[in-house]
Design a protein around this nucleic acid. Structure first.
Lengths: 190, 190
DNA sequence: CCTCGTGATGACAGCATCTGTTGTCATCGA
DNA sequence: TCGATGACAACAGATGCTGTCATCACGAGG
């Protein structure tokens, strides 16, 4: 019989999400989160470096994306390879219900939105480094990553409001749309 | 003779940049910044809502970009209009020397990098709203903004290392590059 | 010349975040 | 059985940020 309940980190994460939902991020103290998880404030900081990270712990998405990318055919265009990796990452998204709650809480709190942006930037950096490992020049790598993230955002934004569409299909659709936006208007067309 | 030196805000900003450069963001306290500017800690918070904002005060860039955009020919493609606005904003960049110091300090401190990202996101939101005012559907507006920011980042990144190139020229160059990246490889190739 | 409002600042008190350090007590392995 | 380790509590302290009230110069109006 263990001396302490197991999965302290998981309890902290669930308690935090719950509290942030009901009373807001700013109005819930770390001591309160810890208390709800049966721990003391000091223990919270053993699992998370700061209060926000309780919603951002884990690198699964980043490592998964990089791994998927490295597994693609090196003969592909960087853009093609990255889009393939993105499509293959659809399943990583944890229980949709949990994900939506999390997104709402983050969107409602500027401090959390800030952290969210930097996490995305970290993923972008990791992917850019992966591109460089395939011989793409650094500046260009970052550029291609930005293109991919633009496509990805367009696709997931649609996916959030229309869960039935497959992410893979939405990605190719967004790619076509990008091509269209960037193509100089044909003088005759429309 | 005024009771207080003038431009308290400017003194705080300069003192903060100086201190962040020499001893880092985390290791300089608000009281220290205020002291260096001849004020007390409490006065610092009368000018800036928090410690980071001392490097981000002011919306000139955002308002300038939106204004430039609204001034463009409504007959233009959204993308064309935005790129035009971007090119017209080159002059807004304050003394290059100051700008570079600021960029370095921000890049060296995760907390400041976070704030920087959210400021960019704010500009993106403002531009997206401006696009919507021209009748672009919200999701598409955000998409186009992302495209423009991708181009802009590619251009300014080159501009930082090669100050002599005109930003305007770099922007059209990046646009061409984007078109190239997105264009599907000719079916005959490979 | 006096008074009174206004605006900028100081002084103080207080809560919350985050960190360093030390003590306690099960559990595990030799 | 005993020492090491891991998981947590307890405590102290620096710093970020906020609310509130006092202070003092300045300028407008009487």
């Amino acid at each position: 019989m263990p001396r302490w309940e197991s999965d302290a980190q998981g309890r902290l994460e669930r308690a935090a999400l719950e509290l942030f939902e009901t009373q807001g991020f700013e109005r819930t103290s770390v001591a309160q989160i810890a208390g709800a998880a049966g721990l003391k404030e000091r223990s919270f900081y053993r699992y998370f470096p700061d209060k926000r990270e309780v919603l951002f712990a884990g690198n699964e998405l980043e490592t998964h994306l990089v791994a998927q990318f490295e597994a693609t055919d090196p003969g592909l265009t960087p853009l093609e390879a990255l889009l393939t990796a993105l499509k293959a990452a659809e399943e990583i998204f944890r229980p949709r219900e949990f994900l939506l709650r999390r997104v709402r809480v983050i969107a409602a709190n500027p401090a959390l939105a800030e952290r969210d942006l930097i996490k995305l930037a970290d993923i972008a950096d990791a992917l850019a480094r992966a591109l460089e490992r395939r011989g793409v020049e650094p500046g260009k790598a970052r550029f291609i990553i930005d293109v991919v993230l633009t496509i990805h955002r367009r696709a997931t934004s649609r996916w959030l409001t229309d869960p039935d569409a497959s992410l893979s299909r939405l990605i190719t659709q967004a790619t076509d749309e990008l091509r269209e936006v960037v193509t100089p208007p044909a003088p005759t067309a429309r």
